[in-house]
Design a protein around this nucleic acid. Sequence first.
DNA 1: GAATTAATTGAACGTTTGTTTTATTATGTC
DNA 2: GACATAATAAAACAAACGTTCAATTAATTC
Lengths: 217, 217
Amino acid sequence: MARTTGSDGEKTEAAVREAAVSLIACLGYEAMSMRQLAAEVGVQAAALYRYFPTKQDLLFTLMFEHMEDLIEAWRAAHPVGADPATRLAAYVENHIAFHIERRHSTHVSNMELRSLSHEKLTQILRMRTAYEKELRAILRDGVEAGLFSVEDTGLTAMALIQMMTGVIVWFRPGERLSIAEVTATYLAMTMRLVGAKRGGATPSYDAVRPFERSRTL
Amino acid sequence: MARTTGSDGEKTEAAVREAAVSLIACLGYEAMSMRQLAAEVGVQAAALYRYFPTKQDLLFTLMFEHMEDLIEAWRAAHPVGADPATRLAAYVENHIAFHIERRHSTHVSNMELRSLSHEKLTQILRMRTAYEKELRAILRDGVEAGLFSVEDTGLTAMALIQMMTGVIVWFRPGERLSIAEVTATYLAMTMRLVGAKRGGATPSYDAVRPFERSRTL
DNA sequence: GAATTAATTGAACGTTTGTTTTATTATGTC
DNA sequence: GACATAATAAAACAAACGTTCAATTAATTC
């Protein structure tokens, strides 16, 4: 009827975050009730309000940290001073690896934007735009260097991001394809899509069927 | 306090459908209340139950008819007996035109699947799979004819559909790009992505910058 | 071991939800 | 003009919602 033995604020808060990401990803933000979330954590609904002032603040926190992590992952992975093709390859690989690893929080951050207040929405969209800007810069550099051939860098960046993020809709680890195979295929598709020229540091991105690939190895 | 002058069942039902698509697209299915929907139509909530037995039945009806229309649009537009490149071009053009025209109902059909019961979900997914199968068949034919070069037809089909459908996320009619420009660019990106060979009936799909294009015309 | 602080419960609050029921009025038919 | 039917309003239902508050116990500090 009060504090329970072994209870720890940090652990509870982490458990709430984790359960919330899963529940919101599966049911949707509006469909998940605070009582349902509390039950998943093994606690009463009132206890949640010790960690998050409102339901919407909880949602915002999850999204904000997802975007922070995404931007930080790219900051740690991006090759500095490399040629556009290398940078594009790094962007694709980082994006796909990150989104496959965090399917649930990606779902939350992409699908529940409409449940945010105007100010909080603006803040999340600003972070998203900053991340997408990196891709546009790579495409622009590639076009200016005569390495890529695209009609419109802004449109192409959106198309690529939609295509790559879409992987979480159908991909399930442990099924027909491995993460490495999926990433390699998306990389090849991306390089063809942007019309990457061959030669130099950039290998050919023509499609190689899996059985052919294994014969050449 | 009862039947109002000029009231007509058919008109009311159509108005309910229309308002529901807009409201669900903007607020989400769970966030839209039946009273809100009724107010939008200019009617009391109880009147809605004359046309749809439950809220979920309303959602299902909207999704079902969206999928029916999509499949019918492709049935009417698909070129029979044509080469894979022509068929692929027709698929892309039809898909983008349809989804731009029906942004709202596409949003509903893509985002609210989790609010459906198991049986109704299965029914919608069956229709979706049938539609996607058409694209896979085109890609397979193209690969077998040596015209396309893709690693995995299933994966490529999913990637293309995610990329194309994603247009509704950022595209707004009347802004920087026209529908025709967007469609042309997506078509060119698609052809490069599948490694379509040049020559024959298929023109080059190398990127041509807008200003260059207008100079050649 | 007393005092303080951290973590949680249980009950309650006022709203809002999807839906049902009953009564009432407009329209179309003979 | 009477009668049947179609279309709606108004009121009510129990259940569930997000959130608050006071009480209570575990852990920590001195």
